[in-house]
Design a protein around this nucleic acid. Structure first.
Lengths: 222, 222
DNA sequence: AAAAACCTTTCATACAATGTAAGTGTTTTT
DNA sequence: AAAAACACTTACATTGTATGAAAGGTTTTT
């Protein structure tokens, strides 16, 4: 995705010379749909697009598909970099940039995602599993440990049922004794912050069995 | 990494039976270099190693590479857990331990780290100005507010002199009264964490005037 | 050597995170 | 309809972390 025709040509050439098939996109309506349709192995995204924010595209892409995204920009400001990483960009390169470096990064990304690229149901947020920093809607919040651990478990099993035992394990590392109440309190707190952040996901209760993370729209199916 | 040959054999078997290729390490010189060279998907680390501290290895590993680390230790050393988690271990299991549990944790860690890009060209760290989450060396830490604010100010003026007034402003929003001591204490704490994280930048004191953030190598120029 | 500027540690306080306990709400069973 | 089981939320006490005050140490300057 690149609006400058000259740059676009050059990028295409670089990759095609190396044997990669390339799709160029210069029109940016419904671009995410298009990309998902095309199902490429890697997305090269220029942040400086006319009339539309590359950040928004990046975020939406990362929400709807598990694809490696390489962000290109001339603005080599720290702030943009941060922003991009929040939105899940995998790499970030300032242009101009040597083509060897670009190809190396691209190859690296492709290798890393090999066999794993896939469309993913609506995740509109990112959770740093080390700090439990939660990035959503260009906001970021640090979750308390317990809430972070719980959300992490749900993310590892999207749409699946998660038993109370599993959740207790994640919190206290033991299956022996399960403190139902403490778990409920922590879940309640997590739900509250999820609501406050207007997340598109919800924690659904499966009476007698456990819980499940589910997109809000899906709530009434089943 | 395991010194006991019997245990080592057993662990290898468990994982190989499940289809994971395994490298065993029983010699602990330059072990971190070796690990980084081998670039495994997961490190299994015994804390009780002869002649060397598993904690140190864990810390160094986490400084220099983004790898999931699963710490193993005997059950009676539970208080080590805190220590290990502080050094960035991702999981902590007491042995003996059922192999299903071990495999589950390992699989979970592998999943969690998969696709997580922490390569950051240019600056070797990033600071989220909302949460003060600091990303460095494929680690992430949430700084206390004051340390975050200070570092933020320095980032806004890289290599430039920053006066004490400016810093106090950032901390307490006033120029009227300046608490030199409190500022010094907070700077001291920031320096400490920067050292612990092995950051390539340093805060340099300009006697009588203020402070300056500067790359370590540059320190002796001027 | 003495003074000035700066640094770091220790301690007390304030605040946030967590578990306990109690009370309320909601299903399911009788 | 009542009772029981399960789930949710709030309030409070405890614990742990972040912070500033104070004191003593170190480096630089005179």
């Amino acid at each position: 995705m690149e609006d400058d025709p000259f740059m676009r040509e050059e990028l295409c050439e670089i990759f095609e010379k190396d044997g990669y098939p390339v799709d160029c996109i210069a029109e940016f309506d419904h671009v995410v749909d298009e990309i998902i349709q095309a199902a490429p192995g890697l997305v090269l995204l220029d942040i400086n697009l006319p009339g539309i924010s590359g950040f928004d595209i990046c975020r939406e892409l990362k929400c709807r598909a598990m694809l490696p995204v390489l962000v290109l920009t001339s603005r080599d400001q720290m702030k943009d970099e941060l922003h991009a990483l929040h939105l899940g960009a995998d790499e970030y390169l300032a242009k101009p940039c040597r083509k060897e470096r670009l190809l190396a990064r691209a190859a690296n990304l492709l290798r890393r995602y090999e066999g794993r690229s896939q469309l993913r149901p609506g995740m509109d947020f990112l959770l740093d599993s080390q700090t439990y920093a939660l990035y959503i809607h260009d906001q970021s919040v640090v979750l308390p440990q317990n809430q972070g651990r719980l959300l992490e478990v749900f993310l590892a099993h999207p749409d699946e049922l998660v038993t109370k035992e599993t959740l207790c394990m994640a919190l206290w590392g033991t299956t022996e004794y399960i403190d139902e109440n403490a778990l409920q309190v922590n879940l309640s707190r997590l739900k509250k912050t999820m609501k406050e952040l207007a997340m598109a996901q919800q924690i659904e209760t499966v009476r007698g069995l456990g819980y499940r993370l589910i997109a809000k729209e899906k709530r009434d199916e089943t």
